[in-house]
Simulated assay, not measured.
Amino acid sequence: MNSDATQPPAQPTGIQGLWVWQEQWVADEAEQDRLIEFCRQYGFNMLMVQIHLDGGGGPSPALKYPDQLAELIRKAAEHGIAVEALEGGPEQALKENHDHTLAILDAIIAFDSTLPEDARLTGVHYDIEPYVLPAWQDLDDRRQIMLGLAQFFAKARERIDEHAPHLTLAADIPFWYDNLGEDGEVEFAGQTKNIHQHIQDICDYIGIMSYRRDATGPNSVAEHVETEMAYAEQIGKWVLPALETVELTDTPQITFFGESPESFWQTHNAVREHFADRPGFGGMLTHSYRSLRELLEGDQD
């Protein structure tokens, strides 16, 4: 790690990941090059790139910009940068939507099968967030939503293992699932566990939206991921804490928006240092490319 704690880590161990949402970062060649150079400059070695659909809701989803996405993956691979297909939406946890969500996964797998082995996707990454659904507030409905979420990940795991075993399966979760107590438990696969445990059992790793400015201490990144990391170490999996850089008007205290680049890197590096010797620590994620670029370079484009 860089000896200056206020600068990007020189040689970060594990994953240094970045969410990439906007389609122009895929569709435009110049923006692709800028994204790759940004990763090289700041040490990011993985991109979670949102999959955009051409036509959206039909029975046979098709990827938008497949040629451009293939080119981005090729450019990234040349520089040792992994690319995961990013998908998600709260409604995807619901059983009635599983078929369509799995059809999108099938389209991702079919696209990946057309790519050369040295420039393919490395994983599929889901950011589903079912707790924003109104039904989540009812405990009985919540348990059905959690069951549907676990069932979906199990189906996705089966699809990937059968058709694209080189791909990892990852999921983003909030840090507070473990704080729900019995209200966060659901019976699945013959076991009653907290929903975060079911997700960790199925996925290769989880990203935790541990959005705080403090690396350690009370109400910090480290405190909010400890339960999930301890469980990851029991089952031989990874946890990746995440930092936020997007403007949040309701909760400005949890984001680095408006803060200095030095403060962001100081917390980022302190989290890495804190967990450096933990086998359950897989690296760091940052949300997201657009706002981090603005934070580090003052660029609002």
Results as ranks from 00 to 15, higher is better:
M284F: 10
R290D: 11
Q266N: 12
H274R: 14
V124K: 06
L167P: 04
W176G: 08
F256S: 02
M146K: 05
A156V: 00
Q200T: 09
F111N: 03
H52N: 03
T101H: 02
E91W: 12
L139H: 09
P261Y: 11
Y177E: 08
M46H: 04
T13K: 14
F153V: 00
A70M: 07
G236M: 06
I104A: 00
I160N: 03
R157D: 11
D54P: 01
G282I: 04
T192S: 12
G17C: 05
G88F: 03
A27D: 13
G57R: 06
L180N: 01
E259A: 15
E71M: 13
M229Q: 14
D28M: 10
T267N: 02
Q11T: 15
Q234S: 14
A5T: 13
N179L: 14
A222I: 15
M284N: 05
D67P: 04
E71F: 10
A107M: 03
A103H: 00
L133V: 04
I104R: 01
G258A: 09
E23G: 07
E96V: 09
G57A: 10
G57Q: 08
T249N: 12
L149D: 01
P241G: 05
I109L: 02
E96S: 11
A5R: 12
T245A: 10
L180Q: 04
G282C: 03
I36V: 08
D183R: 13
N45I: 02
G298M: 13
V271W: 12
